[in-house]
Amino acid sequence: MKVLVPVKRVIDYNVKIRVKPDGSGVETQNVKMSMNPFDEISIEEAVRMKEKGVAEEVIAVSMGPQQCQETLRTALAMGADRGIHVKTDDVLEPLAVAKMLKAIAEKEQPQMIIVGKQAIDDDCNQTGQMTAALLGWSQATFASVIELGEGTAKVTREIDGGLETVDIKLPAVVTSDLRLNEPRYASLPNIMKAKKKPIEEMDPASLGVDTTPRVKTLKVSEPPKRQGGVKVESVQELVSKLVNEAKVI
């Protein structure tokens, strides 16, 4: 079977995010960008399926500007077989991404799409669910274990208060959670080999998707600076402050 994995280029998780002075967004100029960590987990899972012989091909997809090709190269270096780059400088919202994924899925016919549960830049947590809905496929979100059966998959989901195991029919959309696996380092020889793997370019129009944003960002601002705390003399004083000032108990 084929596995499709979307990978998003986001600000590296080590970078301290700064808001642009005009409040229109966050600073991305001269900022280190990397693959969304949940997408790395998705690629790792797909590559492991291939190594076990249950998947034949792993296709990585990235949508966005030219530099997304670097993110695709990382996926190829980790073991994906080929890349698809939907090239656009537009701002992409989850619905537009889901529509494009649907169009690509209809063309490629994968049995599974593994989507990171959320991207660490906008934290939307929507793309996987929307893609499943648009395709009319089964979905299992926040996966910490995926076991493949005959035309089915058993997925352990991380939910509030515990783990839930669901059986789903393939084709399906699964979103990966943090504990699904520990992604590998791309080795240097594999980074070199990734140069030779194909990346197909397309644009939103060729997929028949209108990417016009439906949400307007009014303002982006830094969270308020943390205020210094106070020391209390006794437990009594603490309780009294919690009751009378903070009004939390």
Binding site: E70, R73, A77, A186, L188, M192, A194, K195
Partner: peptide
């Protein structure tokens, strides 16, 4: 490719 190598 060089920048991927250095990142890794």
């Amino acid at each position: 490719t060089l920048s991927l190598l250095l990142d890794a």
